[in-house]
């Protein structure tokens, strides 16, 4: 008798299981809210003139496609440029401005500039609440004509203050892109 009772319970439970499996709702698509797809570095000559735009765009984020780099023109020799950086998440419509988030948390972020060739100096033009550099605004001075590279790296939670080098700062890399430039 007990056996029959339990067997019927088993069948009941089984049919309950089977009924569980009938929902077929499509999952919701996720828009990555954190991805930075695009970094635009704008270099405006100090005395005025045409701004040069260095852009790195990676629309599939951590997908297989590499970022696409576009450089709008060549830099002039021995010139000081006012630089600014804009970060966007273009997977969202309209594109989300990530620069604002970085500016809000400027004590936890810092851009680093590593140069080679015909770039003389890069100096920070902004600072966070503790007086440490951030790098959303900076100034860049070119040297004699020739080729140059500018590597821009954004670190999250670096050691602050640091000596300005990537290795001393530590932290996690949010963005890093190297631009090959011509100074003429």
């Amino acid at each position: 008798m007990k056996t029959i009772k339990f067997l019927s319970m088993a069948i009941l439970a089984g049919s309950f299981l089977a009924s569980c499996s009938s929902d077929d709702n499509s999952p919701e698509e996720i828009n990555e809210e954190e991805t930075i797809t695009t970094m635009t570095v704008t270099l405006t000559p100090d005395g005025g003139g045409t701004a040069i735009e260095l852009k790195s765009q990676d629309l599939d984020g951590d997908g297989p496609n590499a970022p696409v780099i576009t450089i709008s023109g060549n830099l002039a020799a021995s010139t000081t440029y006012n630089g600014s950086i804009e970060l966007l998440n273009e997977t969202e419509t309209p594109a989300e401005d990530i620069t604002e988030e970085v500016a809000e948390e400027d004590d936890e972020h810092q851009f680093f500039f590593v140069t080679t060739g015909s770039i003389d100096t890069v100096t920070y033009s902004d600072e966070d609440g503790d007086g440490n550099p951030v790098g959303i605004e900076f100034s860049l001075t070119t040297g004699a004509a020739g080729s140059a590279t500018l590597a821009v790296t954004l670190r999250h939670e670096p050691k602050k203050p640091n000596n300005g080098t990537l290795s001393d700062a530590g932290g996690e890399t949010d963005i890093t892109q190297t631009f090959s430039l011509t100074v003429e």
Binding site: D58, G61, A66, P67, I175, T176
Partner: peptide
């Protein structure tokens, strides 16, 4: 290796 805007992975 794949390249993204965050560097190489």
């Amino acid at each position: 290796v794949e390249f993204t805007i965050r560097g190489a992975f």
